[in-house]
Amino acid sequence: MMNEYALPQPRFDVLVQGDGPALLLAHGAGGGIHGNFGLVLDDLSRDHTVIGPHYPGVGATPVATEPLQLDELADQLVTSAIAQGHGSFAVLGESLGSAVAVRIARRHPQRVTALVLTAGFPIADPVLALAAQLVKTLARAGEWSAVARLACLSCLSPARLAEISQADLDAMVAQTQEGMPPGTVDHFDLVSRVDVREDLARVTVPTLVVVPTGDRLVLPDSSHRLAAGIPEAKLVELPGAAHVLEEPDRATWLRLVREFLATIVPRSA
């Protein structure tokens, strides 16, 4: 199988779990495979090979020495899957990972069987662009506690924020700060530069776009624009769900994704 673009040598730390048709995971900025997909890894790996590369500065992948480039991330994720013996795969992207997934589908269309895009965006909307700038400014000033507070404010639903106690919120902020990967600033720098609007019309595989309607970091309209730009994309909403899906919403997400994946015919490698 010939590639439209040459692939690099694999250099990302990769989580691999399960057996069956491959699911390539593309995580979000300041997140990771466990952070974004931890609630569903065991379930998905019952009948799929789940392949989860970590971006620079996450897991055991070294921190980047130069600004991240979307094409390089896309190619590294593809080569991570191939290194595990999977020449074709569905791609599940969350937040920044949705743009990575779209770029994978454009650069390596013969390898992609389907896309699932959750809380995604083709280009940073004003709210996300402002948040990315705040993350970079605060982090470079060493204000990591403030970055964690911004993350909690942005990634929890309004309903969750209204009911959480101050003590629980403080504990969540501390946990968020402790869990922030070293590559967080680099990821959000890329968020502010992403633009896959011209890629959307060239996506030719079945696509499911999942929209958390309570998202305070990526405006739901951004996901709607993704779906509108991709031919025959299917859009579903998670009413009131936050940017980071909590257990009930993630359970609904899992059901929707499983129903969608059941309609996809795997390709031979």
Rank of each mutant, 00 (worst) to 15 (best):
A129Q: 13
A129E: 12
A131E: 09
A131P: 03
V135K: 05
V135A: 10
T137V: 13
L138M: 13
L138V: 07
A139S: 13
W144G: 01
W144H: 10
S154A: 15
S154W: 13
C155L: 12
L156M: 13
S157C: 09
A159S: 14
R160F: 10
L161M: 13
L161V: 03
L161D: 02
E163R: 15
I164L: 12
I164Y: 01
S165H: 09
S165W: 11
S165T: 15
L169K: 14
A171I: 05
T176P: 11
Q177W: 04
E178P: 06
E178H: 15
M180H: 01
M180Q: 11
M180W: 02
G183T: 04
T184D: 08
D186E: 15
H187V: 10
H187Y: 10
F188W: 15
F188N: 01
D189C: 05
D189I: 02
L190H: 01
V191Y: 02
S192P: 06
R193L: 13
D195M: 09
R197I: 03
R197Y: 04
R197C: 07
D199Q: 10
A201R: 15
R202N: 13
R202F: 12
R202Y: 12
T204Q: 14
T207E: 07
V209W: 06
V209Y: 08
V209S: 01
V210R: 07
T213K: 10
T213P: 05
D215L: 08
R216M: 12
R216D: 02
R216V: 01
L217H: 02
L219S: 09
L219R: 11
P220W: 08
P220S: 01
D221G: 06
S223Q: 00
H224V: 04
L226W: 05
L226D: 01
G229V: 04
I230V: 11
I230H: 04
P231L: 06
E232H: 05
E232F: 00
E232P: 00
